[in-house]
Design a protein around this nucleic acid. Structure first.
Lengths: 352, 352
DNA sequence: GTACATATTGCAAAGGTTTTCAATTTGTGC
DNA sequence: GCACAAATTGAAAACCTTTGCAATATGTAC
């Protein structure tokens, strides 16, 4: 390994010039004669020489690396964000590093130190911890971190922290979903997966409740802190066994599509016909959401667009010290068969 | 940004010692008096000083960073591998960087140069390109890369390249699936998604064909180069419209669970009852595979175990120059309702 | 050929750490 | 208090590049 790593000095020596000249040739500096340039290039090509980017980084005080912090890359939402952000970074010559921070973990001083030690050029925060409703201490850690590198998030602004926020307004999204169900004639609608634990989920719950009350309806809540398919099954079981079928809701709004997977499955297992006996809507428009049975009505929350946009802004903030700002967008309603309406098969493509 | 980044020199000055001593305190070197150590520690704590890991890397000739190369982090298989590998790396104080290389892209000299320039401590190759059946030039590029850093793959060995390979024997897996279907009474079985493009997919096809012939059956092939849900729908349409229902296969083996998603959906759309009218099996045991309707019989291919194991071996190879080796494991058959057998709800958990 | 402007090149410092080796301090036994 | 060993500390080199500045070479106008 690392057999014969040439340095710029070796190249310079062999080409009969100074290391400074080699450096200039390599970086395309204008003030270098064609003859010298050619001479140097020959040697560079001969050894396929590539300058040590660590040494360069030390001098130029950058690492050309960005950190992305998220709770779970296996979750399709985060995978989408990460994928788009990586691609955007790559196009600008940067590399991304994944830092995992569990859903329920707080961002600590030690955690921030890792990023500082590595001299990252910026960091992108994506949900989980950062979304925690108990934000005690968080702004302090992040304010310190921000003295070393720019921060962007794809979540609502964190009180006490001024950084770039680009996110989808999920409360607005849930209002859309409720109105859609209402227009289809539903009056008893339950929300599955309510939780106060993270703000992103809290927003969904808030939007649901607001719109229900606004429509003069009574919001039925089935809270659940973990939003997996398996928990979706359990939630349905709990909700429906708590009341006789005559009093069941006619529609279920599930906190996200992942959990909806289990909801659908449990409803099938109970022998209900979908969407006739029960309408279901989800949130996030995952790649699988068009392929459930029935296909799921859901919200497009712009995971890829926002991942790319946030990364773009991060890169720009890093170069120009641009001012912090917040940008929101209302999710798009994606109507499919799961609540008994016309077809919409648009879907994000997992193999683009 | 980067307001007042202290250096080890600043700390040394303020503590009234030499930078060497500070360095020793920071790295827990034994030969330093308790008194001095305390004095230094006070100043370090005061500024929350963290040594610049880039400078350290320059001197120690490592970056404490590993590269992971994969075609698509949005694909749940790759997300699992990446997640497990990242966690393993983190536990050893390393950071992972994602490098994307499209399914159909070749690993070029330029691509390898990126990794070399960044002085990665190792690289993990995960399918796609690397799997291409047309391997022309690949061993040369990788052999060169290997002179700079250790390589592990989670694919079958690449002819002409000696590195660590840890992977699931998918041919064996598909033989298991075929035998399972055979035992359930199926005789006309089709393979959906056959392709010669990547070895991993080619292996599945090979295993299928081999076992069919071994059982004296005629393999029915429905080739498809792209293995998305949408293509799954199309493949079913093509396959079934090519013959009268009486001659249809009674079971479909789909190249992976993702594509099976579309297969199931299309079969539903055509009004078939599953599994009575048509059995379906997939491959990969994704998080959603237990929640399709009906739940999918599939193969566990150890994405997380192998991601973690490969990373572990990479780290070890990097430190000890361990000898290359190859390790295979037969996938585990996960039986669910999609081919009409007893229940098995084990599933990888997307929110662990 | 001279004087000047311009294009090219090299020297040396800087970036922040770790580590070897030598120097210094401290401790021990008498 | 002395001689010596052991523990602690510091000076300086090394890692590899980029870049400001000075020096040299080249070109131009007379």
């Amino acid at each position: 390994m690392a057999a014969e790593t040439k340095t710029i000095l070796d190249i310079a020596r062999e080409a009969g010039v100074s290391p400074a000249t080699v450096s200039r040739v390599l970086s395309g500096h204008p003030n270098v004669s064609a003859k010298t340039s050619a001479k140097v290039q020959t040697v560079v090509d001969k050894y396929r020489f590539k300058p040590n980017s660590i040494a360069r980084g030390l001098l130029q005080k950058h690492s050309k690396a960005l950190g992305i912090i998220m709770p779970d890359i296996k979750h399709p939402y985060y995978a989408s964000v990460f994928s788009a952000a990586q691609e955007e970074a790559r196009r600008h010559g940067y590399v991304v590093q994944l830092y995992r921070l569990a859903y329920n973990a707080m961002i600590t001083d030690d955690f921030a130190n890792q990023l500082i030690e590595r001299r990252l050029d910026g960091v992108m925060l994506c949900g989980g911890f950062i979304e925690s409703t108990g934000l005690s201490g968080l702004p302090a850690v992040l304010t310190r971190l921000q003295q070393y590198m720019p921060i962007v998030t794809i979540c609502p602004p964190i009180p006490g922290l001024s950084c770039i926020n680009i996110y989808a307004d999920l409360a607005a999204g849930l209002r859309k979903l409720v109105r859609h169900l209402y227009n289809l004639g539903h009056r008893r609608i339950a929300f599955i997966g309510a939780t106060a634990e993270t703000r992103s989920m809290g927003e969904r719950e808030q939007g649901f409740t607001d719109e229900m009350l606004h429509l003069g309806l009574d919001p039925i809540m089935q809270p659940e802190n973990i939003h997996t398919p398996a928990m979706g099954e359990q939630a349905v079981l709990k909700l429906l066994s708590a009341a006789p079928p005559a009093e069941w809701p006619t529609a279920l709004a599930v906190v996200n599509d992942l959990m909806a997977l289990g909801v659908l499955r449990q409803l099938h297992a109970m022998g209900l016909r979908l969407p006739e006996d029960m309408a279901v809507v989800g949130c996030d428009n995952q790649f699988f959401s068009a392929f459930t049975s029935p296909p799921l009505t859901t919200l497009d929350v712009y995971s890829e667009e926002h991942g790319a946009a946030a990364m773009r802004q991060l890169l720009q903030a890093q170069e120009t010290h641009a001012a912090p700002f917040t940008q929101t967008r209302d999710p798009t309603l994606i109507v499919r068969e799961s609540c008994g309406a016309q077809l919409d098969r648009r879907t994000p493509h997992p193999q683009a």
